[in-house]
């Protein structure tokens, strides 16, 4: 890690000025976890999120080394744009990759380091059981299926806005019960 944390614009300038390996390492340290999150959200798969991270970082580094980022303070926007393009590309090639994996085996893929905090399931079970009935049903069924469907609102005879409110309240209670900041 760099001794004094540079802001994004300074980091971009250092990388653009030559082959500053330390600045490039800092870019990786700073951006990789954030890009992985984007990948998990959009690709719903840890390996795909890891692939996305690698590709976005390579594209970003190449662009910075070639001084193609004209406004250094807009690094996050540039990375986000690259994430979107790369995710689209990965979705297109996912089918082809699945076929290659079937052919050559999953051992060819590099292991992905877990990045998520650990959850104490026993504690979570107690916290969920202490929710109000509606909150428990909403939060479990929503996250089980990862959908905020109108079906669920229909099942509960509530509007989607109301469903959202119940979900928000439940998440707040769960986080408080689990001992994390609201």
């Amino acid at each position: 890690m760099m001794e004094v944390e540079l802001d994004d614009a300074e980091l971009v300038r250092k990388i653009s000025s030559g082959t500053d390996r330390e600045a490039e390492t800092e870019l990786y340290r700073r951006m990789a976890p954030r890009i992985r999150l984007y990948g998990l959200r959009h690709l719903r798969n840890e390996q795909a999120a890891e692939d996305l991270t690698q590709q976005v970082l390579i594209t970003t580094l190449n662009a910075l080394r070639a001084c193609r980022l004209r406004e250094p303070e807009k690094l996050a926007s540039f990375v986000l744009g690259t994430c979107r393009m790369t995710a689209l590309d990965l979705r297109r090639t996912a089918h082809r990759k699945e076929r290659l994996l079937e052919q050559f085996g999953a051992e060819l893929t590099a292991p992905v380091q877990p990045i998520m905090p650990r959850v104490d399931y026993d504690k979570l079970r107690r916290c969920v059981q202490n929710l109000k009935e509606r909150e428990r049903t909403v939060v479990v069924m929503t996250f089980y299926d990862e959908r905020t469907s109108s079906d669920l609102a229909g099942f509960l005879d509530v509007s989607e806005a109301n469903l959202r409110m119940i979900r928000h309240r439940a998440i707040l209670r769960l986080r408080q019960c689990m001992g994390v900041a609201a």
Binding site: L37, L40, I115, M116, P117, R118, V119, Y121, L124, R125, V128, V139, V140, M141, F143, Y144, E146, I171, L174, R175, M178, V180
Partner: peptide, 14 residues
Amino acid sequence: REIIALAEGLRHLA
């Protein structure tokens, strides 16, 4: 990340 872990925990319980 905490939210994703919570979501995963809820799926596990379900």
